[in-house]
């Protein structure tokens, strides 16, 4: 199991366009990636490819989340997803 933490950079938090960009990227992977708030049990983590789950997570700018995935290429995939979360998409 690979694991990464990421700090939400987008000003609006993890919804609207930033959530759409992230869910789409997670959905294109051949791995199942989960997302949870830091400190929450791993078995309550949600599907990172679900925009509805991301929205119900309600993560704001500055909140820390944990991404988890298993399998070949998991580390590279998670690094890529962390980068998306740590970019302020509203600033573009």
């Amino acid at each position: 199991m690979s694991e990464r933490t990421a700090t939400i950079a987008s000003r609006v938090g993890l919804h609207a366009r930033p959530a759409a960009i992230f869910a789409e990227a997670a959905g294109e992977l051949d791995l199942e990636v989960t997302i949870a708030r830091q400190g929450e049990p791993a078995d309550e983590a949600m599907d990172a490819a679900s925009i509805l789950s991301l929205m119900s997570l309600g993560a704001s700018q500055g909140d820390v989340v944990v991404l988890r995935a298993e399998g070949t290429g998991a580390d590279e995939a998670l690094d890529k997803l962390v980068k998306i979360l740590e970019t302020d998409h509203d600033a573009e």
């Binding site: 609207a16 959530a19 759409a20 869910a23 949600m46 599907d47 490819a49 679900s50 925009i51 789950s53």
Partner: peptide, 18 residues
């Protein structure tokens, strides 16, 4: 466009479908 793109993602949302 953005609203439609986000709505398109919701339509096949894995959590919703599951």
């Amino acid at each position: 466009k953005e609203v439609l793109e986000a709505t398109a993602l919701m339509a096949a949302d894995p959590m919703l479908v599951k």
